[in-house]
Simulated assay, not measured.
Amino acid sequence: MYTVTLIPGDGIGPEIISVVVEIFEHMNAPISWDLVEAGEKVIEKYGTPLPDYVIDSIKKNKIALKGPITTPIGKGFRSVNVTLREKLNLYANLRPIKSLEGLITKYDNVDLVVVRENTEGLYKGIEYKIDDTACTVRVITKNASEKIAYFAFKYAKENKRKKVTAVHKANILKITDGLFLEATRKVAKEYSEIEYEEKIIDNMSMQLVLNPEKYDVIVAPNLYGDILSDLAAGLIGGLGLAPAANIGEDAAIFEAVHGSAPDIANKGIANPIAILNSSIMLLNYLKLNELAEKLQNAISATIKDIDSLTPDLGGKGNIESIKNKIISFLD
């Protein structure tokens, strides 16, 4: 039996997380949930959206499933997601992007993975203002760059991927992105069996839209990886399908890529597939591969039934119809 920290989150978070819990129970997954609350709902009581007991739970269990947590824009508290990644040194953000059969999108042949450095860059949040000028500090280190490069190449080798593409803007940011490229080039030499290439971020964005089938594993600094993974999610149908894992040496947090969507909370139309796909990554991380495959097959079958899908996927269904259809395919 595995104990997993469970963070429902804000907005639609509790709704979609409850779907995972019910489906896992139906599958008899050997998982016990350690429920902890974080986000806007705990600020009044604890004075922070991220009380210490959340960090303590994840450190103890070493694995968590997290619903989306609201991040204020331009004001308010610092992103809970960024804080978790820094405090737990979850240096690798892994975002698989794969076309789903039966879903009508502009592409049906996308199968790539974005590996994003998760702890530095502009997300350090080092900002200051002098009179009418605002500045931010972008931090890129050799150590973090090499770690994420090793993670990307190791992932490629273990998952029989053939190519790693490093994304940068070293033509302009010659020191910071130059250092990132030095690190990826060094690591690439140790994996001669894997093709290595480099793309400037603006060209990479265009190439993903024009020819996404040409890409396999993409490794990038924090901001580029964040933007590209959302862009890539759009190629397969949107953020409602895209899973993510934040992985470190001592812990891992699995989450959906999308936000808390407070405008549709408690309306029954939230799409749980992204968090379910994240839970599949969690199962594979725990080496519960048979259960992961079983759930993946049930989701794939459900995707082909348009009537069961939520409005964001072009369907007329709701969160209950998706959940019930998945469970029917599990039986």
Rank of each mutant, 00 (worst) to 15 (best):
I55A: 12
P68H: 09
Y91F: 14
R116I: 10
K75S: 11
S57P: 00
I73L: 15
G47H: 03
L50F: 04
I73W: 12
K98L: 15
D111P: 07
Y107W: 05
G102C: 04
L90E: 00
R116V: 03
P49G: 14
R116C: 12
V113D: 01
T83L: 03
P96R: 08
F77Y: 15
I55C: 11
S99W: 10
S99R: 11
K60P: 02
Y91V: 03
I55R: 14
L103T: 02
Y107I: 01
K62R: 13
S79K: 14
I73P: 14
K62N: 05
I55D: 11
S79V: 13
D52L: 12
L112F: 02
I55L: 15
R116S: 03
V114C: 04
S57G: 02
Y123C: 02
E120R: 00
D108N: 15
T83C: 11
T48M: 04
Y46G: 07
T119W: 02
R116H: 14
S99G: 13
V54Y: 04
K59Y: 04
N118S: 14
K60Y: 04
D56F: 02
K60Q: 09
P49M: 13
R95Q: 08
V113C: 13
L50E: 00
E117S: 08
I97P: 05
V80Q: 04
T71N: 06
V115W: 05
P49Q: 14
Y91P: 10
G67K: 00
L90A: 05
N61P: 00
T105L: 15
I69R: 00
V54G: 06
T119Y: 01
I55T: 11
V115T: 11
K60H: 09
I73Q: 15
L122V: 15
Y123Q: 08
I55M: 14
N89K: 06
R95K: 10
N109V: 10
T119K: 01
P51A: 09
I55V: 13
V115F: 08
Y107Q: 00
V80D: 03
Y91S: 04
K59W: 08
E120Q: 03
P68E: 08
F77C: 10
Y53F: 09
S57E: 01
T48R: 09
K45V: 01
V113Y: 07
G102A: 06
E86Q: 13
K87N: 14
A64Y: 01
P72G: 03
L65R: 00
T119Q: 07
V114D: 03
V114L: 13
T48W: 05
L88I: 10
K59N: 08
Y107L: 08
R95V: 07
I58T: 06
K59M: 05
L65T: 01
P49W: 06
E86I: 10
T83A: 14
S99P: 11
V114M: 08
L84D: 02
R95M: 06
N109G: 03
P72T: 02
G74I: 10
K75Q: 08
Y123V: 11
E101W: 12
K106G: 12
V115N: 04
I69S: 00
S79A: 13
P68S: 14
I58H: 02
Y46R: 07
P72D: 03
S99Y: 11
P51E: 05
N109K: 04
Y91K: 04
N89A: 07
